[in-house]
Amino acid sequence: MPTARFRPNLVVDGAPAWAEDDWVGRPLRIGGVPFRAAGPSARCLVITIDQQTGVRDREPLRALARHRNIDRKLLFGLYLLPLAHGRVRLGDPVKPADS
């Protein structure tokens, strides 16, 4: 399934699956920009619509229901709040702000 289906602003490559669970509530730095990981993203029905064709399917919500159903919320991704102005660039490292 294409990543665009989830409508992300940023995609982190190289982190283990579900690494964002450990980031919730923590300060992060992407390149030189500080962020606070505000919380997990609960997914809605929009991700079941193929943006190219408009066809609706039960995936990926069905898979999330099997693997990421936490307190009846289907979680995938993370909300980040920027703590300062700055520019994030392709290839910038993502790491805890205190490291």
Rank of each mutant, 00 (worst) to 15 (best):
A19Y: 03
E20K: 04
E20V: 00
D21M: 09
D22P: 03
D22N: 13
W23E: 07
V24C: 11
V24H: 12
V24Y: 04
G25S: 03
G25L: 01
R26T: 02
R26V: 02
P27E: 15
P27S: 10
P27T: 08
R29T: 02
I30F: 10
G31K: 01
G31M: 00
G31E: 00
G31D: 02
G32F: 08
G32K: 13
G32T: 15
V33H: 10
V33W: 05
V33Y: 03
P34L: 01
P34Y: 03
R36F: 03
R36I: 12
A37H: 09
A37K: 02
A37T: 08
A38I: 12
A38H: 06
A38T: 10
G39P: 03
P40H: 13
S41Q: 15
A42P: 13
R43S: 04
R43W: 03
R43K: 11
L45P: 00
L45Y: 10
L45Q: 05
L45D: 04
I47K: 04
I47N: 07
I47G: 01
I47F: 07
T48I: 04
T48R: 09
T48K: 04
I49Y: 04
I49W: 08
I49F: 06
Q51E: 14
Q52N: 11
Q52W: 15
Q52G: 04
T53L: 14
T53E: 11
T53V: 12
G54Y: 11
G54I: 09
V55W: 09
V55C: 02
R56C: 00
D57T: 12
R58A: 10
R58G: 14
R58E: 10
R58D: 10
E59N: 07
E59Y: 03
P60F: 02
P60W: 06
L61R: 11
L61V: 09
L61F: 08
L61W: 04
R62K: 04
R62Q: 06
A63G: 13
L64Y: 03
L64F: 07
L64M: 10
L64W: 05
A65T: 11
A65F: 13
A65G: 15
R66D: 13
R66I: 04
R66G: 14
H67C: 13
H67S: 14
H67Y: 09
R68F: 02
N69D: 06
I70K: 10
I70P: 04
I70C: 06
D71C: 07
D71T: 05
R72L: 10
R72E: 13
R72T: 05
R72M: 08
K73E: 14
L74D: 02
L74H: 02
L75P: 09
L75A: 09
L75H: 12
F76P: 05
G77P: 08
G77C: 08
G77D: 04
G77W: 01
G77I: 06
Y79W: 15
Y79M: 12
Y79V: 12
L80F: 05
L80K: 12
L80D: 07
P82V: 06
P82I: 00
P82L: 01
P82F: 01
L83T: 07
L83Q: 15
L83W: 08
L83H: 09
A84G: 11
A84Y: 09
A84H: 08
H85G: 14
H85I: 03
H85R: 13
G86C: 03
G86I: 01
G86F: 01
R87F: 04
V88G: 14
V88Y: 05
V88W: 03
R89Q: 14
R89A: 15
R89G: 15
R89M: 11
L90Q: 13
L90K: 12
L90I: 13
G91I: 00
G91M: 06
